[in-house]
Amino acid sequence: MENILEVNDLHVSFKTHRGEVKAVRGVNLTLKKGEALAIVGESGSGKSVTTKAIMGLLPKPAGRVKSGEVLFNERDLTKLSDKQMQKLRGSEISMIFQDPMTSLNPTMTIGKQIMEGIRRHQNLSKADAKKRAIELLELVGIPNPEERVKQYPHQFSGGMRQRVVIAIALACNPKVLIADEPTTALDVTIQAQILDLMKDLQKKTNTSIVLITHDLGVVANMAQRVAVMYGGKVIETGTVDEIFYEPKHPYTWGLLSSMPRVDSKNSELLAIPGTPPDLSNPPKGCPFAARCPHAMKVCTEFMPDYSDVSDTHKTACWLQDERSPKVEPPETIQVGGDR
């Protein structure tokens, strides 16, 4: 399968009063046609910034892509002008945001907000665009769409608003859909509905999805492949099975063990001690070294290269080096060993 989206050695920095914050430091990602890729990692690991850079939505002038490329259908998006990016955004690549309570304009009707993108990218008359908006609302499961298009965001519940946001994102049949924690701000019951909806729509439209989340349950439910980010780098990537059942990076171990389990004998909630690195002054070596229980001398000095665990599974960790001592993953995650 060919790659629809490829991120190569992407560096993104922000200028702040305290100096330059290197939020993304050499990220590589690939997204295949029709696939769902999950990016997981804790807050500040660079997941959102990576996707904002892909979309060309970095806050200006503070944030900018320093180097690297974002290839979409073999075009480097970082080289495009604002105008060219506008043409792409919303039509070829679109985005769903975290908080549906704030991501819709409170002073514009739902219909207008959906039609805006359609009218911009497709040569449709106002009446046809409206028809399409109603179709979209129906598609995302909003009852009585003819009436609802005339209403304002405050007349919708949170879950319904997120459906509207999804409708806006899907309005022009994008090839890539980026979902930045689409369920984080929703009730648990609504979360499942929204995920089901997204899965269903992915099947119908064959859209490729980049899903940002820190909810590993969502990953298992939606994605085929996972990229684990830490300190502005992708530290492990592989298929969902590989990441869940044969994780290699100690950070991934920590992430998996900190997921609460119903069947666990250990009722205590596990956490990774320490805090993520300060990216205005990023560490020389592996960003996780300071918190890693297996850190060696080399870890704080040099960033490890990626080593291939399998064709699809890569990790950047010195433990993969043959000179390193053999370390077994903690048993807290081995519990889930049966596939």
């Binding site: 679109s94 975290q98 991501s103 805006e116 806006i168 309005a171």
Partner: peptide, 22 residues
């Protein structure tokens, strides 16, 4: 800095419309 402005920009509409309509 509001999220809905990012949404509007993500739709690909022109900067002029983002500024004046939203």
């Amino acid at each position: 800095n509001q999220d809905y402005i990012t949404t509007a920009r993500a739709k690909g509409i022109s900067s002029f419309n983002v500024i004046f309509k939203h």
